[in-house]
């Protein structure tokens, strides 16, 4: 959504002790938890991730330091193998999967036209229970804004799904990584609850 500061102020609001918006290697290495929010179009996003070496830092945080990591929206899309956006862009392949355009015309099950981008509050079906879902009922509405959607290859990683003409992956989890297509920082009380769960999360791995 164009905005990293929204995530920072939401985390501060739910009690994160110190939130830094940074691409500084040392600060990210020293952090207890890492949030990986993506913004804008995937090609620019990926080139910035690589230029700033955030891809390496993410790998270190995930597999060496075993820190809790939360990826949001384009941040989640960047984790996939490939995105159709901008004529096709290779992504980080942290989680094998693809990012596709919703396609037009898009329709719901009753044949009604759906607008793209998918913008607004949709119900997220909890596919698997997870510590980040604590206190959040099934079918809670979260705020989405995206024209491309994720499908991971390994379906056991899907923790939440959303129906918008297609069945899209709304949330994924693997070990110390959690990812959401929706914006918890813009999803009012439910989103704040998820962020609170994230800052209190101690992954098992």
């Amino acid at each position: 959504m164009g905005n990293l500061h929204s995530v920072a102020s939401a985390l501060a609001h739910v009690g994160a002790e110190r939130v830094v918006v940074t691409h500084d290697v040392e600060q990210i290495r020293a952090a207890d938890r890492v949030v990986f929010p993506g913004v804008g179009a995937i090609r620019d996003c990926m080139s910035e991730i690589r230029r700033l070496r955030c891809d390496e830092l993410l790998q270190v945080a995930l597999t060496e330091q075993h820190k809790p990591v939360l990826a949001i929206c384009v941040g989640m899309q960047a984790l996939m193998s490939h995105s159709e956006e901008n004529g096709g862009v290779d992504c980080l392949n942290v989680i094998p999967g693809t990012v596709r355009h919703f396609g037009q015309p898009l329709q719901d099950a009753e044949g009604r036209r759906l607008k793209v981008p998918h913008m607004g509050w949709s119900e997220v079906r909890k596919v698997i229970e997870h510590p980040l879902w604590a206190g959040i009922p099934d079918a809670t509405r979260f705020y989405f804004v995206h024209s491309y959607y994720v499908t991971v290859n390994d379906r056991t990683l899907v923790t939440g799904s959303v129906d918008y003409g297609v069945c899209a992956d709304a949330a994924l989890a693997r070990d110390n990584l959690f990812a959401t297509q929706f914006h918890p920082e813009k999803s009012h009380t439910a989103g704040l609850q998820l962020l609170r769960n994230f800052i209190n999360w101690t992954p098992a791995c």
Binding site: H5, S6, S9, A10, A12, H13, Y143, V145, K186, L192
Partner: peptide, 8 residues
């Protein structure tokens, strides 16, 4: 406003 409002 952005510091206190957690909707778009």
């Amino acid at each position: 406003i952005a510091e206190q409002v957690f909707i778009p």
